[in-house]
Design a protein around this nucleic acid. Sequence first.
DNA 1: ACTCAATTATGAGCATACTCAATTATCCTG
DNA 2: CAGGATAATTGAGTATGCTCATAATTGAGT
Lengths: 211, 211
Amino acid sequence: MRGPGAPIGRRERSKQDKRERIRDAARELFALHGVGGVTTQQIADHADVAIGTLYLYAATKAELLIMVQNQKFATAIDDGLAAASTATGTIDEVLAVIRPVVSCLREHVENGRTYLHELIFGDPTEPYRREGLTLAARLEGGLATLLARDQRINPQDAGTLARVITAILHLSTTATVYMDRSVEEILADLGEQTQSILAQRHRGDEVRRLG
Amino acid sequence: MRGPGAPIGRRERSKQDKRERIRDAARELFALHGVGGVTTQQIADHADVAIGTLYLYAATKAELLIMVQNQKFATAIDDGLAAASTATGTIDEVLAVIRPVVSCLREHVENGRTYLHELIFGDPTEPYRREGLTLAARLEGGLATLLARDQRINPQDAGTLARVITAILHLSTTATVYMDRSVEEILADLGEQTQSILAQRHRGDEVRRLG
DNA sequence: ACTCAATTATGAGCATACTCAATTATCCTG
DNA sequence: CAGGATAATTGAGTATGCTCATAATTGAGT
């Protein structure tokens, strides 16, 4: 029975529950002992499922980490965008949104390297990586609409601007030279120097094809 | 006997040989069957050493990959810089150096993600990662001296310019949005947009502190 | 040439990420 | 409610990355 528009039976709910139980167990144990200090068996036990069940919900141990990190990432993004909901779209406001996201991405370093970022920006075919991409897109979209509120910004530019800011966020969590620099410093570095590069190139051959 | 200034006995040579044999075996088999399609045992067999010996030269399987990739990276860098040895230091020449390096870094994708980059820009304490960092520094230094030849470029700026170019190279191999774009396109993207960002910020409060 | 401490090599064995044939739970139909 | 089709769960088993106690090799001192 039950209206055909809502196919959510006990089965579906139980499935959802299990997914969350597993993710929560992973989050707790990872935070407590580090990723390497926990076995998948322990996570399965903590979530009160068999090891085989765990692997129905996460194809690999790394994917467990992505599940956990995606959740944190999503929270950081949503909180940031919500806080900026009444903002007027200046760059500074956008940077304010970015800052907590950067912090979130810089966390959870294992073996001295940040897992998350490479995973999130990795292969788009893996389901959880796709989720990460969707999140990044959500951030980019949010920034774009935010920027579009600023009268001085050409509406068509808002999207590109947002992409560049996301790229900076990316650099800040992946490139060693930029790992402990603030978003503003990276921006300044990139901005001033690319400007001078472009200026020089324009001074050269105006129309030149380059592979 | 043998002069005391040359402490290179059979031992030292044998050690070097073994390191190379192991690296070569890894390179061949990785190229042939992919990283996941080869066991460390097979690599040890191919290099004609015991599995335990292999682990004396590479602490993990991932490190084997870094050994292999560092070699390719080094070759790409040296070739590029050598080819530019008579260049005059224009940006286009620098980009010509960069292009093959990017190709090299974009190779060897396993599971849809490029191992190398995260490894090279990873934890500087791991010996082979340190080697990767040294290589990146060599590239940056080479670019800087190259750029310094251009009369129009302020000599003090050459270093920063080189760093930014390296960052772009980084983005081109890590960030999904930029993964299939040419260096020039990324440069244009970053250049134009950061410029407009900076312009807007300067129009705002001139001296503003941002955590 | 012999001794011996230090270094290097070995491979059986261990830990653990992941699989899959068998089992159990859930839903649908008459 | 009975029967059976489908989906979900299980955990002993497997594959493989990595370790470590033991053995072989090296070369300086005699």
